[in-house]
């Protein structure tokens, strides 16, 4: 598998050039944002960082302060589908070009990817150390009042590995596997 290097911020052209099945490695800025962040954005609160061309990482990391600095101890993806009601809106209103998470997302998000030029990138769930190894700096944090796992962490990553599983052309690996497995299991019914 040839690995496609990506650097943030992403342009619309780059986001639209990616296809389901592509393996990518991201270098640059990731902002974590999960349930509470999406809930706030949905209710119209302005994000404390500029998300244009950015990538949101569905992740609630383990962070500890060591010598006055934040150190990331573990940072794998969380289940993305909980953001399904909100994600397309964040694409429309804040111009994000990438979403990293696990488990994939539904039709609203897929439509958002097509309409606004965004891509869903699948990290390996549970692989918090492989992910954390590629986080070379923690440059800041916002909305800490949400609690550490829900805050917006400013991560700097180098060669952060993901697989494209939903693209801007309407492709979704998750939809494919769901349909095939539904059929396979129906045939295996006791």
């Amino acid at each position: 598998m040839a690995v496609i290097p990506l650097t943030t911020p992403l342009t619309e052209d780059i986001a639209r050039s990616l296809t389901v099945g592509d393996t990518v490695e991201i270098t640059g800025r990731l902002y974590t944002g999960r349930d509470a962040v999406h809930h706030r954005l949905h209710h119209g609160e302005r994000p404390p960082v500029d998300l244009r061309g950015g990538i949101i990482y569905h992740c609630g990391p383990v962070m500890v302060q060591e010598g006055g600095r934040w150190v990331c101890k573990a940072a794998g993806p969380t289940t993305s589908t909980r953001e399904e009601p909100y994600q397309w809106e964040v694409m429309r209103d804040h111009g994000i070009r990438g979403v990293i998470g696990k488990g994939g997302m539904g039709p609203k998000t897929l439509e958002g990817c097509q309409q606004y030029g965004c891509v869903y990138l699948h990290a390996i769930g549970g692989a918090a150390q492989v992910c954390a190894e590629r986080i070379t700096r923690v440059d800041g944090v916002d909305w800490m009042d949400l609690g550490s796992p829900e805050a917006i962490w400013h991560l700097w990553v180098e060669r952060f590995p993901c697989i494209v599983t939903m693209d801007s052309r309407g492709g979704s690996l998750h939809r494919q596997v769901r349909a095939a497995s539904e059929q396979a299991l129906a045939a295996l019914k006791a």
Binding site: V62, A74, G76, T78, G126, A128, Q129
Partner: peptide, 9 residues
Amino acid sequence: KSQPLCQDT
């Protein structure tokens, strides 16, 4: 590294 396997402990 003696660090969490998964960030969701």
